[in-house]
Design a protein around this nucleic acid. Sequence first.
RNA 1: UGUCCCGUGGUGUAAUGGUAACACAAAAGUCUCUGGAUCUUUUGUUGGGGGUUCGAGUCCUCCCGGGACAACCA
Length: 569
Amino acid sequence: MHEENINSETKENDSIKPSNFIRDIIDEDLKINKNEGRVHTRFPPEPNGYLHIGHAKSICLNFGIARDYKGFCNLRFDDTNPAKEEVEYVDSIKEDIKWLGFDWGEREYYASDYFYKLYDFAVQLIKQGDAYVDSCSSEEIKELRGNPTEPGKEGPYRNRSVEENLDLFERMKNGEFPDGKHVLRAKGNLSSPNMNLRDSIMYRIRHAHHHRTGDKWCIYPMYDWAHGQSDSIEKITHSICTLEFENHRPLYDWYIEKLGIYHPQQIEFARLNLNYTIMSKRKLLELVEGKFVAGWDDPRMPTISAFRRRGYTPESIRTFAERVGVAKRDNIIDLALLEHTLREDLNKRAQRVMAVLRPLKVTITNYPDNLVEEMDAVNNPEDDLMGSRTIYFSKEIYIEQDDFMENPMKKFFRLSPGNEVRLRYAYIIKCDDVIKDENGNIIELKCSYDPETKSGSTASQRKVKGTIHWVSAKHAIEAEVRLYDRLFTDEDPGGHKDKDFKEFINPLSLEILSGCKLEPYLKDSNPGDRYQFERLGYFCADSKDSNKDKLVFNRTVTLKDTWAKISKG
RNA sequence: UGUCCCGUGGUGUAAUGGUAACACAAAAGUCUCUGGAUCUUUUGUUGGGGGUUCGAGUCCUCCCGGGACAACCA
C-alpha cells in the first residue's frame, strides 16, 4: 500500500463545538443535574438495509454528543420485525459506523435482547388493566380506529378480564395461534386526536425466524412498544430521533409512565435530505433489487458504503454532517455542499498524479527518438511533506482529447494548430500538424518543443496561457476509469406525486472508459487508494474490481471546472 | 377540515429582548507550470397584520404557508 497521509486521520475543526437546540437542551439538563450529570445517547438502526448519508448525520449527532459530553452512545439494532431484517445488514451497519470513525465499545445491543423483559412489561400492563388482547382482524381494527378528524370506536374485545387477557397473551406467546389471530394492544384513548394513542398495538403474532432469537418467539413487539422501553433499560438520557416520531412522543411517555420505569427524553430533529438524491430505504432497496444499480455499494448510491467505495473520506462526511447543522425544519441540502467538504479534504491530502482519460497521441517531431528524460513532479502542492516523484518524458506522449481544439473558441487556453501550451513539469510545445483518419477524426498531433523551456530550468520563464497534463506513451500503464455522475436528473426525484422516481434516473450517471493512460507511478496502487488526477478530479482505486492485473478507478468527484462553465455559456 | 411541529438571503445554519452573522451556491477580480487551490470583492434575508417594549427575527395574538399522523413497518 502507498502509505500516504490520506490513509491516516487528519485533524478536523472540532475544536469549535457545534451548537444546536439539542445541545442546548443537554446543557440545561446538566445545569440542573438531571440524570446525575450523565449524557447517554444511542444510535438505533433497523437492520433492514444499508446505512445512508442521512444515517451518517444521526450517527455523527449521537456519537458526537457522547464524545463531547464525555458520555456514551450505544449501538442498538432495532430488530423487532423478523420479516425484513438480516444479518448482512447488521454487519454492514457496524462496518459503516466504524469507518465513519465512531466506536460503541462493548455497547452493542439489540432490541431482541429485551424480548423477555418486554414480555414481562406487557404482563404488567395487562395486570394494571392498561393492555388487552384484541381478536379483531387488521381490517376491523383499522375501521374502528377512526381517522384524524373522527374518534375511534370501542371494539368487542376491549373489556376482557385481566385473567382472560393474561391467558390469551401467554397462549399467543406459546404459539397456539396463527399469524394475525390476536394482537396485544395498549388500552389508551380511542378518541385522542393523536392517532398513536388510540390503543396502539404492542405485539403481533409472527411465526417467523428471527436473525438472533431464531424460532424462540412467535410474537414480536412493535416499534413503539420496544423502542422507549429499550431506551429506558439502557438508561438512555436523550433519545434523539427524527421528526416523524414527534407524534409518537406522547405514546413513548405513556408507556414509560404506566410502567413506572426510568424516563429518557425523546428529542426530534429534521432528517437530512439531499437534492438529486433519494433517501428512502424502501426506494434504495428498489434500485438494488431492480438492478438499476450494481448493489447497495454502487458508487452512485447515497449509502455510506457507496460513498466509501467511491472514494469519499470519513472526515469529509463528518465535516458535512457538522456543517448541515441540526434543527427542526425540513431541509434539502445542496449536493454542492457535500462535494465542497469532500474537495476541501481531498485537496489537502490527495497525492497528485497525471492520467489521460481520453488519449490523443502527440509526436514531438524535434525531440530525439530514444531519449527519455526524468522529471520531478510535486506530490501535493498543499503539503510539502508529501514530497515528489519521478515522471518520464519521451518523444511520444498522450494528451487529453479535450485539451485540443482544431478551431479554438475564444478563451480556449489549451492546444490548437499553431498554438503553444505548456506540458506540466516538461516543455512548451507547439502544434504544427493535425493528422486525421479517412473519416476526418483527429488521430494524432505533430508538435515541436522548445528545448529552452524545460520546467525548473532558469530559461524556463517564458509564459504561455495554458498548462496541460500528459503521459509518456512508452511508459504509460492502462486502466479502466469509471466516471460517476449524479444518479438522478431531478432535484427532488421522490417528490413527484404523478411520477415514479425511477423515471428520473440519469442515463449518464455512469460512463466507463477503458484504455486510459496513467503515469507508471500508479501501477502499485491498491484498492481504496485515493488520488487527484491533475486537472480532472479525485479518483479512487475500486475496492472490488481493481487489482494488479487490471486497474480500475472510480471518479470520486471532479475538480471545480470553470472552463466547463465558460465553454457552455 | 382534528392534533402536533416548522417558517431567517438561492440552499442550509446562527443570533437565547440590544448593529441580522457564518458556510455553500452565484457573480467579478487577483494569482497560478492544475482553467484546481489561494486571496479580494459583490449580490441578496427575518411569511403577513396587529400588540407588548426605549428597543422584537426573538415575547403575545390573529392570519397565511409548509410538513407529520389514520402498517399487525420503523
